[in-house]
Amino acid sequence: MSNSKLYKGSLTTIILRLLSEHPKMYGYEITQKVKELTDGELKITEGALYPALHKLEADGLLDVEVRRVDNRLRKYYKLTEKGTKETASKLNELERYIETMQVLLNPKWTT
């Protein structure tokens, strides 16, 4: 699926949505979850994921937690209160956009 440009704009919403359903997630887990949920149709690239996560963290939408897992340190991301509010607004925004696109793609022609 050639979707790089399409998903670029919605990457933030995808991340926020996933984190609203999980108490905390780490970067690799997010890439795998998206792959699993979309049956491999959508692949989040590493080069896009981390910049998006770091931006959300700097904007105060995500908080971080670090734990030692096996023999390495793992950085988990979780939503802040501000992030939870932003998720609702971003989802709403995306849903309205999808609805508009559907109207444009399937117009009901009047005779």
């Binding site: 780490y26 970067g27 590493e46 981390y50 670090v66 390495r72 340190l73 793992r74 950085k75």
Partner: peptide, 8 residues
């Protein structure tokens, strides 16, 4: 640290 965990 974050990249090492991802790569691992």
């Amino acid at each position: 640290t974050e990249l090492v965990d991802h790569m691992a």
